[in-house]
Amino acid sequence: MQPFTKLSAVAAPLMRANIDTDLIIPMGRYLMAERADMHRFAFEVLRYLPDGSENPQFVLNKPAFRDAQILISGANFGCGSSRESAVWALHGLGIRCIITPGFGNIFYNNCFQSGLLPIVLDEATVEHLAKLAASGNGGPFEIDLEQQKITAPDGQSHAFAVQPQRRTQLLQGLDDIGVTLRKSADIKNHRAADEKARPWIYI
């Protein structure tokens, strides 16, 4: 997994609430596309017009935001289906960080599996950052995971929270399985005790 330490990048504002994972990646694409190709279909319904050409109104198609690596969005981002392909699609598109007042919880967990940093800030701050991003002339946003700090183009800094193990794994690019397997003895002991306590679970 690609580590996440610091990011200096353009942020694209996509300020609508309840962006669901069907909208991020439609089922038909999730089904048939390879993980590495998923980004071609990210936000397909918004990004392209019915004739297949780019929708010039969509933020990520605008010249100022084509290289955006940060997405600023409305509340409940990534709600709905558990499909991890939504994260793969965004990651493939170059998005490394999403800032919103709230995430769909399954999507939130999925972000960490691909080295994508999900940041939750209060609604007023997100609105403010979105406005700065939309103005498009203030320079990049700086994100420092070590310091857990975003520095906006207006020079203001905003702290964000991330669970310590998640942070460590992102900083080092470690996936969950390797980290968990270090606790194999604990897992085995818990299971052995449980097999005695609840034998009916084991069929």
């Binding site: 558990s82 499909r83 991890e84 392909s85 994260v87 399954i106 999507f107 967990n109 999925n110 599996q113 691909s114 669970q163 193990q165 996936d175 969950d176 399985i177 968990t180 397997l181 194999s184 897992i187 299971r191």
Partner: peptide, 20 residues
């Protein structure tokens, strides 16, 4: 509860899940 594909792989490999 529902999980993503990487979490499914994690459960397959470890019999356990990380969760808040």
């Amino acid at each position: 509860w529902g999980i993503g594909a990487s979490e499914v792989a994690h459960v397959l490999a470890t019999g356990a899940i990380i969760q808040q």
